[in-house]
Simulated assay, not measured.
Amino acid sequence: MESKFKKSYRFAFRTSLLITLFVTLLVGVFLYSLMTPPWWVIPSFFISTYFFSFFVVQFRVQRFIYRRVKKIYDDLTLLESASISKGAITTDMRTLTQEIDKFARDKKIEIETLKVREKYRKEFLGNVSHELKTPLFTVQGYIETLLDGADKDKKLRRKYLERASKGIERLGYIIKDLDMITKLEVGDLSLKTEVFDIVELVKNVFEMLEMKASKKKITLTFDMDYDQPVYVRADRERIQQVLVNLVVNSLKYGRVKGTTEVSIENLIKNKVIIRVTDNGEGISAEHLPRLFERFYRVDKSGSRKEGGSGLGLSIVKHIIEAHDEKIYVESEFDVGSEFSFTLEKARAPKKKSENPVVEKTESAS
């Protein structure tokens, strides 16, 4: 809110005129009833009365209003008292009303925002607690069983130790991913920007996840044959992590004998868009706005059919935003989902070196 208002004389002008007309008329009738005064008396009285009234209304009444308006400002803590005292408060109360209405609207929005954030905070803490305690209690249970005497059975001992190891591994994934997100948010994670072929990178990801896809008989494919390389400028390792997370996500919720398809399209002159599409379970529209939140689960039962830290999509979003790019999601329940993100196009690197050329290192701020 501004500390100075537009000064208005309308109220003082109109009020002074009414007072002057009334007093002049009253005095004029009184004088003419007693005697006939000189012609200049009534105009002089009118002018002097008007200026006196204007001064009283504009400055004295304004001062009266100022004190009360200042108290309102002090109570609402909108402005510092020092800044108020330097400026005149207008007698036009419309401005004050507008400013108070604006203050009320802003506070209402602020309160609603705080309520939403508090709700998200509680959900986040609950999700973190759930994600950590599940593997922790699993490990604790197996270890306690071994301590109670099950360690004498070699087969059972090895079986329980292997399961405890998987629980520790799950905890490690969660902590590692949380650490990465934190670094991305505060800008401590550097991006090693280089020029590379995105088509080749997608093929590498397909080969990496071929065994995982074969378990559900899901086909990993391009939308078309890419005979020519498509060069982009980004952090190769981080973009590979993005692709892996998106493809793994499509495999988790994909249909048996389904398809995960990757397409690469020219978006604008210096941008390409990479789409990862599947024909899996799909996501209801109500969940899409919060899909990239940490630990947010579409399945409210809290159970997970697949492993993972629950931070994959959140990491994807932070990596893409660290590149100053955009990520999008479109999905229809029981039909499938499409995740897409943009990257900066680049010219083919020189053929002097087979390895991609590292151009610069940027901070992921």
Rank of each mutant, 00 (worst) to 15 (best):
S44Q: 03
M211E: 14
T97H: 09
F59D: 09
A285T: 04
T259Y: 04
L171G: 03
V195P: 04
T97A: 14
S190T: 08
V247W: 02
D148I: 00
I84H: 08
Y231N: 06
G258H: 04
A364S: 15
V316F: 09
R105C: 04
I181A: 09
G149E: 05
S85H: 05
T134N: 12
K86S: 08
P43D: 05
E194K: 13
D179P: 00
E293G: 01
H130D: 14
N249I: 10
F196R: 08
E325D: 06
L18D: 05
S8D: 15
L96R: 01
N266L: 13
V116N: 11
L311E: 10
T20L: 08
I175Y: 10
S33Q: 12
V298G: 02
T259F: 04
V256G: 04
G149F: 11
I239A: 05
M1K: 10
E237V: 10
F52T: 11
Y231D: 02
I42G: 00
T361D: 15
V202H: 07
L25N: 02
F13A: 14
I268S: 14
T260K: 04
R67W: 08
P38I: 00
L114Q: 13
S53V: 09
T193E: 15
R304Y: 02
E265K: 07
T277A: 03
F54W: 14
E286P: 01
E344N: 13
S284N: 10
I319G: 07
F11G: 00
T134D: 11
M208S: 10
I319R: 05
K326H: 08
D74Y: 07
K122W: 04
K352W: 03
L31V: 07
V335C: 09
R63Q: 11
T15S: 14
T95D: 15
K71E: 15
G280P: 00
V256M: 10
Y253K: 00
K108Y: 13
I143Y: 11
F196H: 12
E210L: 05
I319M: 09
L288D: 06
A322K: 03
K215E: 13
K133I: 13
K133L: 12
S353D: 11
E344T: 13
I198E: 12
Y160Q: 07
S284C: 01
D225W: 01
R233N: 11
S337K: 01
E131H: 07
V23I: 15
Q240A: 15
V329K: 02
K115E: 15
L184K: 00
T259S: 06
L25F: 13
Q98M: 07
L156N: 08
F206H: 06
E207Q: 06
L26Y: 10
F5N: 13
L311P: 01
R157N: 13
T90Q: 12
G172W: 01
R238V: 12
